[in-house]
Design a binder for these strands. Structure first.
Lengths: 359, 359
DNA sequence: TTGACATATGTAACTGGTTTCATCAACCTC
DNA sequence: GAGGTTGATGAAACCAGTTACATATGTCAA
């Protein structure tokens, strides 16, 4: 074991301009003190120190004070690992998400973290870049450092990850996706239905030539499910699909392309709001007006969608609720061995001003 | 110790419509197998099993295979805690950030996580809502679960956190802030200078009446530093400050307020880009044109700033670089006990189309 | 044939906590 | 005053790994 050592001057000020020069190592290993040290210093047994830490009520007040003094004196900090080895609990779970760059995942994580925190669980975040191999790799790392459970995005994973989950029997919840028949519990929404809601709204408004802008279908079952929903719809519309990056830039590029089209579509359906906002910017930069010249709808309902000009008609995906539910379900799975049931959350249309009736 | 138990049917399919009903607990505790079990099954000693796990090269191929077979057979997964207790390493660090809702932190985290991952470190995220008490609380939880280091935002923290860091001697790096004289290493930019760059640009363009829109100053030393930079500037301009939430909505509200003003400012300086984009939306919704009627600049340089209409002139803050540097520095601090030096990253003006010369 | 040395494996101590069980004193009851 | 109960504490086992050291076997040179 390499003892962690410190330079003593860490908390002293150093002169201005003397660009903190401490690049040498410490001379005094000054080993971190442990339970035994504290027990010796306080003149009690290790059991008593442990009790002071965990059930202070059962030790006599003056003994307790002696121990606490020793703890403070030795700057004793209990080792998380040693505690974990006995309890079998590490008190954290891992979340595997494609990216942090899309606000939708940031919102999801925020809710997840909030609810996990309420259950005394911390959250380790790992981004996968939508690559199943990276996903599996990161999952292994999470297991390796002791994650007690996993939150994964979508239902498509490579066999490495499935094997890992099966072998370790790690409580794992699938989010952003709903499938009652999945062997692992899914907590999410029906992506196909969400896309259909958006499409039907456009059809209701009288639009029949619709451009669909979506992110990469490769390695993304949510996008594929949404596209499948569109194709399965019985609206009599004509769809032209455009694949691009799920980013403002990606959307903007497509927006400009569509603006340059000799024959423009009646409406544009973007399979996520970031892309929709990007398309809006791209159109506006090209002088195309929304919704006067073309209607635009998205899916997600990001905060930006409510304040953009015009505000974006979109399908609200309850990602915050999803985060809360997933966190609560995982917490109970871990603490009570209660396997969660699948939960479907409702996606709902939010009508704003970016889509209007065809004139 | 509560053994973690599982329902055996977890990976079996269940009939459609029978909404997975497994809410009962398992009958067979089926204790997780450990090193000793594997050793017994393979007919070798625990040391050999350990070697197969950690230095496979030194064990004879056929012994190794026997052991690996036993590992696979018993679905053995080494305990992270037991490993950590010997190595003293838990292989993860914590990051305390105000919120995930602002894309600037999401971008920072993404870079941080990427670089930490390259150093075999995982990242535990904790959001503080800019509340120093929550921050301290979460920091304690992070230490409690074994974080090997900490990344914190800004230099203002309550004494609880400072004591914790001092007592545990936990490697801790301050980001989003630069101060060579801080006892803890800071890796960030000069917030005052960043604000001055934006202000000087507006002054250079001939603007003299400038509205400043900023987030809450309470508990936010970065905002305060930026405001201080503005006040310390020798530009002969007149500043009117507006405080609002750091969000699109917050900015939008102020944008509408400014649009309704009988006497409008020449220019608007927003101390963060989210707010600037919100202001832009608010102005546009009120029929005020940027930059024709009023110039607008932000600070941060978010992806959205490059594609908005008009694209936003802003001050680029190198948060991705900051994330990488902080991760690298923390990783070396942890593994080599090498205390990082403070690093100042340059903030630079990015001229786009939202600010123009006063006519 | 023997000593030197490398290779492969096992034994047991060790990490830093928690927890069971035993001990002992003080108090209460009959 | 004997016997039972309660409260406070300690000794030692235990968790699941790693690792220092010892041992056994095999190879090669002298």
């Amino acid at each position: 074991m390499k003892p962690v050592t410190y330079v003593n001057s860490l908390f002293e000020d150093f002169p201005e301009g003397a660009q903190n020069p401490v690049t040498q190592k410490s001379q005094l290993p000054k080993k971190r003190s442990n339970l035994r040290d504290v027990a010796k210093a306080a003149g009690v047994s290790v059991a008593t120190v442990s009790r002071v830490l965990n059930e202070p009520g059962v030790v006599k007040p003056d003994t307790r004070e002696k121990v606490q003094a020793a703890i403070a004196d030795l700057k004793f900090v209990p080792s998380a690992a040693a505690r974990a080895i006995n309890s079998g609990r590490t008190r954290f779970v891992g979340a595997l998400i494609p990216t942090l760059d899309n606000a939708i995942f940031a919102r999801f994580l925020a809710a997840l973290e909030r609810e996990l925190s309420a259950h005394q669980l911390s959250l380790v975040v790992a981004t996968t870049d939508s690559d199943p191999d990276i996903e599996t790799q990161k999952a292994k790392e999470l297991v390796d450092i002791g994650a007690e459970g996993l939150i994964v995005t979508g239902a498509a994973h490579n066999t490495g990850l499935k094997d890992l989950i099966e072998q370790t029997m790690l409580p794992t919840i699938i989010t952003s996706y709903f499938d009652r028949a999945n062997p692992l519990p899914t907590i999410g929404y029906d992506n196909a239905a969400a896309a259909q809601i958006a499409l039907e709204h456009l059809a209701d408004l009288g639009h029949s030539e619709i451009a669909v802008v979506h992110g990469p279908v490769h390695n993304n079952d949510r996008t594929r499910a949404r596209l499948a929903g569109l194709n399965a719809s019985d609206c009599s519309v004509e769809l032209a699909t455009h694949e691009t990056d799920i980013s403002l830039e990606g959307g903007s590029v497509v927006g400009k392309q569509i603006a340059a089209l000799p024959h423009k579509p009646d409406a544009i359906l973007c399979l996520s709001d970031v892309v929709a906002l990007g398309v809006l910017f791209g159109l506006q930069a090209s002088g195309v007006k929304v919704p006067e010249d073309v209607s635009l709808v998205g899916i997600d309902d990001l905060p930006s969608s409510a304040v953009s000009v015009p505000p974006l008609t979109t399908v609200h995906l309850p990602v915050s609720t999803m985060g809360e539910r997933a966190a609560a379900a995982l917490a109970r799975w871990i603490s009570d061995q209660e396997i969660p049931r699948a939960e479907m959350l409702e996606a709902t249309l939010v009508q704003r001003q970016s889509a209007r009736r065809k004139t």
